[in-house]
Amino acid sequence: MSFDARPAWREELDAIVGARSHGQFNQLLPRLEALDRRHPNVAEIAAQIAWTCETLGRLDAALPAYEKAIALGLPPNELSNAYLGLGATLRALGQLDRSAAILRAARLQFPDNRELDVFLALTLHAQGRSGEALALVLEALCDTTEDPGLTAYGRAIRHAAAKLT
């Protein structure tokens, strides 16, 4: 006997997410919202609603969806993406202190996800903390690049970055 342990909502969510490749986000949002009404406590559905709302520029709707997804609990990779989306949405809404706090907490939880550094740098820049923002981006660049010219000057770049903060 065959047993499929996938939750009932998974196949429909996968189909909706798969349809994104056609770029018709306005048509996907109602499908996601209908799925959410049938399965209101699924973090992955809330996360997809948040991302879709953010993509559509509906930041006021994205914000509670990100918060719901995080509160319900996501797998680590999706949680990191949700924190990034939440932080970016908060920045775009002008909630800079909260954006920075979310992104800093996410960096502590996911130190290998360097994209969080870059999004935190965007928030820091928006706060007028451009030196700290640039230092963060330069550190991320030095840590992740394989460019021979940059790696040759990595020590000098890090030294200059440290003086920016």
Rank of each mutant, 00 (worst) to 15 (best):
P40I: 12
V118W: 04
L84G: 00
L138A: 10
R129W: 01
P40N: 05
D97C: 08
L150F: 09
D4V: 11
N26I: 03
I157W: 00
H125M: 09
D112Q: 14
K68V: 03
A105H: 14
T144C: 10
G94M: 12
L96A: 12
G154Y: 00
A61V: 04
Y83D: 09
R10M: 15
P75R: 10
I102L: 05
R107Y: 01
N26E: 15
T165N: 07
A71R: 10
A135S: 15
A15D: 07
V137T: 14
N26D: 15
E11T: 13
E54A: 11
Q95G: 01
L96Y: 02
A82L: 07
D143A: 12
Q109N: 09
L90I: 02
G85D: 03
T55L: 05
L150V: 12
R158N: 07
E11S: 14
L116S: 04
S80Y: 00
A19M: 08
A101H: 12
V17T: 13
R6H: 13
A62L: 08
L74Q: 07
G85P: 04
E78D: 15
R107V: 01
V137D: 11
T144M: 06
A160G: 06
L86Y: 02
A156T: 11
K163N: 10
G18Y: 02
G73H: 06
E12H: 08
A61M: 11
G149N: 04
L120C: 10
D147S: 09
D143F: 01
L28H: 00
G128T: 07
D112P: 02
G131F: 05
T151I: 13
E12G: 01
L29R: 12
R38K: 15
A88P: 00
I16V: 12
V137F: 04
S2A: 14
N81G: 14
T145M: 02
E11W: 10
E146N: 14
E54W: 00
A100V: 13
V42T: 13
S130A: 12
D112H: 11
R91Q: 14
A88E: 08
P76A: 11
V17D: 07
G128N: 07
A5N: 11
A8P: 08
D112C: 01
G149S: 04
A161C: 08
A101W: 06
R6G: 09
D14V: 00
C142N: 13
L116P: 02
P40A: 12
E33H: 00
A82Y: 06
